[in-house]
Design a protein around this nucleic acid. Structure first.
Lengths: 113, 113
DNA sequence: AACCGTTATTCCTAGACAAACATAACGCTA
DNA sequence: TAGCGTTATGTTTGTCTAGGAATAACGGTT
């Protein structure tokens, strides 16, 4: 009986750049909930600078815009996820979960180790 | 048509320790080929110390010994992979390849993104 | 014009991680 | 006993990156 556990990290690339991985998706979901990049970063315990850099590369790498940002105004501005971004988040999360299930099955099949 | 690429890293844990991942398996295969930890480290461009630490944790984490080491003697000693270690390497590599195939399929199914 | 909360960007510091270096111990051979 | 190549381990040096502080710009409201 094996109590080995199998773990994974997956990410999607385009060219040489990373589009989304677990960290980016976590950030994007926080943005979706908060409507603000700075608030999202604070909520997930990430520095604003790092969050900004991640979102910037995500937006530049993706084929369509993932977030739209506004600066100034009554609320100071904000960041919202585009419909494309929402599809991207959902796609990543479903693939990720499916991957976990698949890997658990794979390890189970080799219960000799 | 999507030219997004999906990538992954998988590893096997027991408790809080990592047993094997891509780096460790690469090292173990080099040991298998060289019969020596120091030569294996040199071949794959890894420092001896890091290689030693990795092999040490692998051996302490696994349920059975993965390598056996000898010190001194005509050839100075050496490190060889046990039969269990060979099964472990093969198991990891097959799961890893299967994971790649699985993920490519998953991404293909969502060719809307 | 003054204020506010946001995005956007630079600079500096601190800590983690990796590489390099040095050295000891081992056991066989000659 | 001296030499050899290996395992085993500590120490130092260097590099890279995360993090914080500071500042500017923006565009609404009052």
């Amino acid at each position: 009986m094996s109590n080995y556990k199998i773990k994974s990290r997956i990410w999607i690339e385009l060219g040489d750049n990373v589009l989304v991985g677990e960290g980016r998706v976590k950030l994007l979901k926080a943005i979706e909930a908060e409507g603000s990049l700075s608030k999202a970063a604070k909520v997930i315990g990430m520095s604003y600078k790092k969050a900004w850099t991640l979102v910037d590369t995500v937006n530049k790498t993706a084929k369509e815009a993932v977030v739209t940002k506004t600066v100034g105004g009554q609320k100071g501005g904000g960041t919202v996820i585009t419909p494309y971004g929402k599809r991207l988040i959902e796609a990543f999360e479903t693939i990720n979960k499916n991957c976990w299930i698949f890997l658990d099955q794979q390890l189970k099949e080799l219960n000799g180790i």
